[in-house]
Simulated assay, not measured.
Amino acid sequence: MATSMNYSVVARKNPSKKSEPAKYYALAQASGELDFDEMCEAITGRTTCTETDVRAALAGIIYEAKRALKAGRIVRLGDLGSLQMGLSSEGAEKAEDFTLSMIKKSRINFRPGKGLTDITKTMAYTRVVTRSMQSSESGGSADGGIEENPLG
């Protein structure tokens, strides 16, 4: 079963070659969101768990993931993926010159697991025209700017 992702086309300049003209790239367009309440309700409908059970389990996962990340551990969530802390810092010429003040920020890196990455193998793409593109383009395709291109 192919899943369709909407995308628009946007102009982007190469930051290292600012004098060159912009090129056009695909930009994924969200078609909504799934919030925590809706997810809990959907899981409840697919299982024998009550909504309270689902909320407790998800809250427990978040709590334990935070604890593990603070301890420097990798959090593996099966087919969902894994979480690990990462750092951004300035560079030093020699290891002995590196100081704690050179660390600028920390972040949480997410690496999707097989259960999520498998959906990319059957993805189809539908081009949509965004409001900003409508105002910058005078023309358009005969189908109102929608172009389907299934891959897989």
Results as ranks from 00 to 15, higher is better:
Glu137Asn: 10
Arg73His: 04
Glu20Gln: 15
Ser135Phe: 00
Gly113Lys: 03
Gln84Lys: 10
Gly145Tyr: 01
Ala28Gln: 05
Met1Tyr: 05
Arg111Val: 09
Thr117Ala: 11
Lys17Glu: 05
Lys105Glu: 13
Gly32Asn: 09
Val128Phe: 02
Tyr63Val: 15
Ser106Gly: 10
Arg76Tyr: 00
Met123Arg: 01
Met85Leu: 10
Ile74Ser: 07
Gly72Glu: 04
Lys17Cys: 02
Ala71Lys: 02
Thr130Gly: 00
Asp35Leu: 03
Val129His: 00
Arg111Ile: 04
Tyr24Gly: 02
Ile119Trp: 06
Ser101Cys: 10
Phe110Thr: 02
Lys105Met: 12
Tyr7Leu: 01
Glu64Trp: 11
Glu33Gly: 11
Ala92Asp: 02
Ala68Pro: 01
Pro112Cys: 14
Arg73Ile: 13
Leu100Tyr: 10
Val128Ala: 02
Ser82Tyr: 03
Ser88Asn: 13
Lys114Gly: 08
Val10Ala: 06
Gly144Ser: 07
Met5Tyr: 05
Glu51Phe: 03
Ala42Asn: 12
Asn109Pro: 00
Ile119Ser: 09
Gly140Tyr: 01
Ile146Cys: 06
Ser88Phe: 13
Asp37Cys: 08
Ser138Leu: 13
Glu51Thr: 09
Ala26Thr: 14
Thr3Glu: 10
Glu41Trp: 11
Gly86Lys: 08
Thr3Asp: 07
Glu51Asp: 02
Ala124Met: 01
Asp35Cys: 07
Ser136Lys: 06
Thr117His: 10
Glu38Val: 15
Glu38Leu: 15
Arg55Met: 04
Ile74Val: 15
Gly91Phe: 06
Thr99Gly: 03
Ala57Ile: 15
Asp37Phe: 06
Leu151Glu: 09
Gly78Trp: 02
Asn6Glu: 03
Pro15Gly: 04
Lys70Ser: 12
Gly78Leu: 04
Arg12Met: 05
Gly145Phe: 00
Glu90Val: 01
Glu148Phe: 05
Pro112Ile: 15
Glu148Thr: 04
Ala92Glu: 04
Arg76Thr: 01
Thr3Ser: 12
Ala124Val: 02
Ile146Lys: 08
Gly45Ser: 08
Cys49Gly: 02
Gln84Ile: 11
Val129Ala: 00
Leu27Asp: 12
Gly139Asp: 08
Ser88Ile: 12
Met1Ala: 09
Ala11Arg: 07
Glu137Gly: 03
Arg127Leu: 01
Thr117Trp: 10
Thr52Met: 05
Glu96Tyr: 10
Leu116Tyr: 01
Arg73Asp: 09
Pro21Asn: 11
Thr120Ser: 15
Glu96His: 09
Glu41Ser: 15
Ser19Gly: 11
